[in-house]
Design a binder for these strands. Structure first.
Lengths: 138, 138
DNA sequence: GCTTGACTTAGAGCTAACTCCAAGTATTAC
DNA sequence: GTAATACTTGGAGTTAGCTCTAAGTCAAGC
């Protein structure tokens, strides 16, 4: 699969895909005779993994380290697990912070809705007054 | 309250507090005669709000726009509500993405734990074999 | 009155993560 | 065969959000 296809399929710019490869986050992708990238199934699974992790804000440096360990084989399983556990903790912490913010946003939006309702009632009252002035004035 | 105190209390570097003020995110803080910042109760509430929102990744530009509208008074209530609703949506979307990543991390960690267990069993088996060789060999 | 340390400013520098550019080669459509 | 399009590279440029520096002022302690 060519880079443009991968880019479309996963919604990742071609520049970014090449960038990931250049910095060693994505292991070297196989090329055709003329040097054009041909993404294998394994490459695609890696791309998907990286995309998922980057989406959640895991730093490239950490992911690079993890991918290196994967390349080194089974002796690095514990180290890999440690990385994932640490990142999971940080992710959960960030999500907890975001939940607090979400709660605050919900509260503030409710307050605004209340204020808007009150404003509308005032306008309605004013309109009623006007109507009465027009039609029932002596 | 002086800037260093605010910084300690809220865990925000003094440079960042000054930066927020410089770019207009935090409205100008009152100064002593000699020009030293003296944060009011209102300033502190603003700092807390900004900290909470920034923690969740809301962009400074959006927060600046929101703070400007607050300064302009009640006529901007609808616009402010719209901003908060839009940001709430984006925040919820980010959190959903992060939840997916968290699920994947949990799954991968489980798999690693399983692998480690298997490895230990193999080692244990090897030790048993050795023990048997040593003690029960003919 | 002098030192120490907190404060001030404008502006430069830094980091992460892309994103774009120029110049060149290869493939595809007609 | 030629034009248009897609690919390649190395390296420069961009963005958001700080973070640091230099040079100076001010207040408190000894």
């Amino acid at each position: 699969m060519k880079i443009s296809h991968v880019s479309e399929q996963w919604g990742i710019p071609v520049d970014t895909l090449r960038y990931y490869e250049r910095i060693g986050l994505l292991p070297a992708v196989n090329r055709s005779e003329s040097g054009i990238r041909d993404y294998s199934e394994l490459d695609l699974r890696r791309v998907e993994f990286i995309k998922c992790m980057r989406n959640a804000g895991l730093p490239i440096e950490v992911l690079s380290r993890y991918m290196d360990l994967v390349q080194q084989g089974d002796s690095t399983i514990e180290a890999r697990k440690d990385i994932l556990i640490r990142q999971r903790g940080q992710l959960a912490a960030r999500m907890a912070e975001m939940q607090k913010t979400l709660d605050l946003l919900n509260h503030k939006i409710e307050v605004y809705e209340q204020k808007i309702l009150e404003k509308e009632q005032v306008i309605h009252q004013l309109q009623m007054d006007e109507w009465e002035n027009e039609h029932y004035a002596i």
